[in-house]
Design a protein around this nucleic acid. Sequence first.
DNA 1: AAACATAATGGAACCGGTTCCACTTTTATT
DNA 2: AATAAAAGTGGAACCGGTTCCATTATGTTT
Lengths: 342, 342
Amino acid sequence: MQKQPTIRDVAAAAGVSVAVVSRVLNPGSGPVAAATRGRVHEVMETLGYHPRTAARELKHGPPTTLGLLLADVSNPFFARLADQVVQEAHSRGIQVLLMTTQEDDQLEAERLSTLIERRVSGIIATPTGNNLEIWKRLHDMGTDVVFVDRSIPALPEVDVVTINNTESARSATALLAAHGHRRIAIISGPVSSTTGRDRIAGYREALVAAHLEQDDLLIRSAAFRGVAGGDAVTALLNLEDPPTALVVANTAQVTAVLRRLAHAGVSIPEELSVIVFEDSPWTELMTPPLTIVRQPIDLLAMHSVQLALSNASGKASGRPSVIRVDAELIERSSVARPKPRT
Amino acid sequence: MQKQPTIRDVAAAAGVSVAVVSRVLNPGSGPVAAATRGRVHEVMETLGYHPRTAARELKHGPPTTLGLLLADVSNPFFARLADQVVQEAHSRGIQVLLMTTQEDDQLEAERLSTLIERRVSGIIATPTGNNLEIWKRLHDMGTDVVFVDRSIPALPEVDVVTINNTESARSATALLAAHGHRRIAIISGPVSSTTGRDRIAGYREALVAAHLEQDDLLIRSAAFRGVAGGDAVTALLNLEDPPTALVVANTAQVTAVLRRLAHAGVSIPEELSVIVFEDSPWTELMTPPLTIVRQPIDLLAMHSVQLALSNASGKASGRPSVIRVDAELIERSSVARPKPRT
DNA sequence: AAACATAATGGAACCGGTTCCACTTTTATT
DNA sequence: AATAAAAGTGGAACCGGTTCCATTATGTTT
C-alpha cells in the first residue's frame, strides 16, 4: 500500500502552486486558465489523485454527511425508510452514516456521541424516547435534528415527520366497527412511544364515535423488539369475552402476531377480522390477503431529508416544522362481519 | 449556532497546553497527572467539547469508517445484511457509511469515488459486476475490499464472502427430484451475476445426478429489480410442457413470482411445488408454509466485517480469502409429489 | 545531599486541504 | 500607446487535531 498523492504532489507534477490545484478542484472558487486546468486534470488522473474529504472538511465543515439513526434495519419498515433516505440524500450529493440503536438508549447515546464528533450537518432519527439532554444539546449546537416516525413531546423544538397516527388507527378501527364488530382489540407499540400512544388514542376516538364500550383489556402494548406480540395475542384469545376484530398497530410485531394466530388455529376473517400496520408485499400474498394500513415511506424519507438539509443551508426558521402525512387504509379480505354469537 | 469549542479553547480554560489535552483525549499516548486529567475533563464537560473526527483523521487516518455498498436496502435480504454489518461494526467501534447502487454501475462508480475520498479503511460491497478498473485500483491502493453475496471472477485478488450457491441450488433441486418431479424449472438472477450463474450450475448438477433431461426453456433469469420474475412465471406456465416444480433462486423476485402464481390461480403445492431462496418470517405464514433456502446472513455479515477490518490492521495475507458458508434447506409444505399426468 | 531516572508539561511542526491577498500577465478601453 | 480592468498565479496562514522533542518538576537511589 503505497501512500496516496497529496495536493502538493499534484501541484509539483503539474508545475503549478497548490492554490491553483485547489481552484481546479473547486470550480468557481477562482479563475484558472483552461490550459492549466487541463494539465492539472491530466496529472490528477495519472497520479490517481483523490482529495481527502477529511482535509476538506477541516476548513469549513460542509454539509456533506447526514446521520441516520434508526432502531434497527432488519425491520422492513425502517429498511425501506433507510433506502429512501439514502437515495434522497445521494441525489443531493450527501452521504449517509447509518447507525442503529436496537431500541437501547445507552447505545443511542453512544451513537449520538460519534455523530457529534463527525460534525454531521443533520441527523434523522427514530428516538428511543430518552437522552433528552443530549438531543437538546445537539439541537442547541445547531445540528439539524429531525425525528421521523416517532417523536419526543418533551422536545417541541425538534422537527418531526410522522404519519398521522391517530387518524390511521381511528380509520382502521372505524372500518371494523362499520362491519359490525363490537369487541375490537388493538396491539400497539409501547405506551412510552408516541406511535403507541397516538394510535391508541385514535382507536379510542373510533370507539367513541361508534358508541362502543371501551375495555382496557382489549388494549395491549407490545415492545418493538422480541416476540411480545405473540403473548398479547394469547392473552386476548383467552379473554372471557374475546375480541372479534384486531388492529395490529405495531409494525415490528405483525409477523409475531400472525404466527401466534396461525398456531392457535384462528381463522381469518371468520373468527377474527384483522387489520395490520404494514405494507410488505407479503401481506397481499397471504390467505386471505390482509387489509392493511400503508405508510407512505417515500414521503417520510423525502420530508426528513429535506428538513435535515434545509435548516443546514441557513434557513433558520423560527418554528420547528411538524409534518404529518396521511397513511392509507387498503381494504383487502381480512375483514368480515363478526359471526353471530352462539 | 455558536461555534464549537476547539482543543485550544479547552487548553486555555484548563490552563494547560494543547498537547496535554490531546493526551487526555488519547489515553496511553503519554503521561498526564491525575489531577490535570480531572480538570481537563471537567472543562471539556462544561464547554461541551467534542473532538472533531475530521481533524483527528488528518494525521493518520485510523480505520474508523467502513463503506457498505449494497444494491438496495429495501430488499429484506440486504436490509438484514446491513443491520448485521452495522451491529458488527459498532461492536468494534467502527462506523458505517451506507451507500446504494440500485444495481446501476454508473451510480456504483460515483459511490466508489466518494468512498475513496473519505479514505474509508474498508469496503463491503455487492458489486454490479462492472467497474473492473475502479475495484482493481481500490484494491491496489490498499483499501480492503470484500465482496459479499456476489463476486467478480475477473478479480480473483478480492476477498469474497458468499453462501455456497451451487450447493444450495443443487440440494433444493435434488429435493424436488426426490419427490418425483421430472420437469423442474428455476428462476434465477441475471446470468451476469455469480449468484445467477452458480445457482443454475447447481440446478444442472442436480438434474444430472437424478438423470433428468435438461431443458433450457425451464431456466429463466430475471433481473433483480423490477418485476421480471412475474413474466418468467407466465412464460413457464405457458410452456407446452410446463414444469411441475419451481425453484425461485432470485430473492429479490420471490414476491413478484408468488404474486403472478396467485394471479394465475396456480395452487401450491398441488399444481406446482415451490422452493424459494428467502427466509422472511412471512414465508412461514403463507398457505401453505413455503419450503425455503435460508441464507445465514449473520455469518455473511460477521465474516465480511472481520475481513474488511483484519486486513486493515496490517494482516496483509498473501492469498485473498474466499469464505463460503452453507445455506440451509428448510422443508415446510410447498413441495409435494407431482400429480399424475392427465 | 548529590546524582539520576522518571513523570509531567509545553512549543512547534505537521497532516492535506482552502482561502486571502499580493503580484504578474493579459485583455479591454479610449 | 497609455492606462485601467480583468485574468491567472503563487505564498502563506489557517482549520483542529496529533506527535516529536525539549524542558521542568518530582521521586528514588546510594
